[in-house]
Design a protein around this nucleic acid. Structure first.
Lengths: 178, 178
DNA sequence: AAATATCCGGAGAGGGTCTCCGGATAATCT
DNA sequence: AGATTATCCGGAGACCCTCTCCGGATATTT
């Protein structure tokens, strides 16, 4: 990969991060390219679809959350791990506008798949909690993911923000117990 | 209102219903107008924004649900009423594509406000259940609405459909008890 | 039948997504 | 260094969408 190509790619990423932070995940790709000082073609060459771009933008955040899941899996009790991780997901969703959207929009064939990564991180936590016995055994990983991202999405779009988010999460977590 | 205007309006509504049923709530308004055999201007005169159109399309459905809420309020126990009504909302959301979206998108100043109507219908059910004592007193009407429409949205967009929807709903309802 | 109020159609501005290819630029070879 | 090659960039442009505007057509009233 040529150095100018790599430089453009990085610059596009930081610009996208900024624009998405202020306009949300549906920001104009045209404008991102313009602000980055490149043509539209350059953007689309590096990031063929919006999902690929979003995935690249939020990749490190998602990886942080996955690492956190692994850590909790090793050092915390099953129930608490699930609760703490959900809270972390929520916190990131509230911080980074558009993050929730990129978690739900899955299946970025090329590049990084946020949806798959998050789902697989959650799988470990859910299965262990279910083995332990205090979590409903009939919910599957898709259910869990749907609930958590649903709360995250709601919380990131409603202005009422953090306290409402915590309340919704506590309702959901309570519902997961049996 | 002139009779041709009324006729066009009705025709637009039925066409919109069909197109939204097959393409979802983000269908092209242009195409709806084209299929209805009118110009774009005519569509926008009758329905200034997409939300107004969606609200008009789903108005009777929403009114049915509101009536159902009133009925349950009068003839069923608080807990059961809440559960049954949520299940009905879910059923409608699964039947009519785009219905969930029109429930969440609120504030159609002109015409009919699906969001407000649904929220006020749910208010009665929630308050009564909370007075009865088996429902968490700290959740407010926005929380309830967010949870129910969240499940509905998820269920209407995931292909796995009905059984998953019921499972998610039962988790949420369990979480609402105390 | 004439006058008036109302409504329609479609052209078109403005913006968005995405493609394509001639020209420019980096990397490699001699 | 100079030439060759592989790679990449820019932006014009096709196509679609939303939304507006107004001359002409249509209904209603006088």
């Amino acid at each position: 990969m040529r150095v100018d190509a790599r430089r453009n790619r990085e610059h596009l990423l930081t610009t996208a991060r900024a624009v998405i932070a202020e306009q949300g995940p549906e920001a104009s790709l045209n404008e991102i390219a313009r602000r980055a000082g490149v043509g539209p073609g350059t953007l689309y060459r590096h990031f063929p679809t919006r999902q690929v771009l979003l995935a690249a933008v939020f990749r490190d955040r998602v990886e942080t959350l996955c690492a956190r899941a692994a850590d909790l899996l090793a050092h915390t009790s099953p129930d608490e791990a699930l609760a703490l991780w959900s809270r972390d997901v929520l916190a990131h969703a509230l911080t980074d506008r558009g993050m929730s959207a990129s978690m739900t929009l899955g299946g970025a064939e090329l590049g990084f798949d946020c949806h798959a990564a998050m789902r697989s991180a959650a799988t470990g936590l859910l299965l262990r909690a279910q083995r332990e016995g205090r979590t409903r055994p009939d919910v599957d990983i898709e259910d869990l993911f749907q609930l958590v991202t649903g709360v995250a999405l709601a919380a990131s779009e409603l202005p009422g923000g953090l306290d409402r988010a915590e309340r919704l999460l506590s309702v959901t977590l309570a519902g997961l117990r049996r």
